[in-house]
Design a protein around this nucleic acid. Structure first.
Lengths: 128, 128
DNA sequence: TCTGCACCTTTACATCATGTCAGGGTCAGG
DNA sequence: CCTGACCCTGACATGATGTAAAGGTGCAGA
């Protein structure tokens, strides 16, 4: 399977497939005589795994660990679980930070009459 | 005031002060004969404004607009308000996305007994 | 006055994940 | 054999920020 087909089958862009290969997240693909990369079903399976992990917000370094655990038949599921929980906590931190910013902005916007006069508590707050 | 003092007074790193100057977010600083940048209290005030806006998650392009509105005495506060509300909505979108990822991970982790056996619903889910 | 240290200057490279473009080679059908 | 679709590598861009190198400046103390 050429890279285009592998990309369509996995949902990972050709650009990122080559990138993942370059940074060592996935092994170098087999090559045809022409130099074209050649992917197996197992390769596509791994790419889908990566795409799903990315969708859950895992960073490449975390995915690298997940891939190792995935292919380790003797792995302990507790390792995967604690990685997932740590990541969930990190996501929660980020979500709460964004939410706090949002609340601040909403409060300020509420205090801003939003007419065509120049005074605005939002700008005043930014000056402090 | 040299850049180091301006940095300490505003909370913006020297690196970012120079960067903001380079990308045109702030005007080029006055220079001494030595070539050293020289900052006024007004310059520091503007840098603090930028730092506060960054803390609220505004992107540089949005801050550029905010700075223009800030220095425009004839501005309408409604412009500032709608910019803030649009940004708040964007923050909400991102926060909800992170929260959805987090919930997915928590659900999966709950289904994972987390012992030393290899089967793990988290990894299974990533395979789909 | 010389010396040393703290500060300043510019330039460049790194991050992270991803897009896009350029300049070329390959393959398959008509 | 030509054409269009595909593939290759390499390079540049994003956004916000850090760090490092190589060199000039300014001031205080010996």
């Amino acid at each position: 399977m050429n890279i285009g087909a592998a990309s369509r089958a996995s949902g990972v862009s050709q650009r990122m497939i080559r990138h993942y290969e370059q940074i060592g997240l996935i092994p170098g693909a087999a090559r045809r005589d022409s130099g074209y990369r050649d992917y197996s079903e197992a390769d596509v399976h791994r790419l889908r795994f990566i795409a799903n992990a990315r969708d859950l917000g895992f960073a490449i370094s975390e995915i690298s660990t997940l891939l190792a655990l995935w292919s380790d038949q003797r792995r302990a599921s507790s390792e995967v679980r604690s990685l997932a929980l740590a990541h969930a906590e990190e996501l929660g931190r980020k979500a709460r930070a964004l939410e706090a910013m949002r609340q601040t902005l909403l409060t300020l916007a509420q205090q801003c009459h939003g007419n065509d006069r120049p005074d605005c508590p939002i700008l005043q707050r930014l000056e402090d």
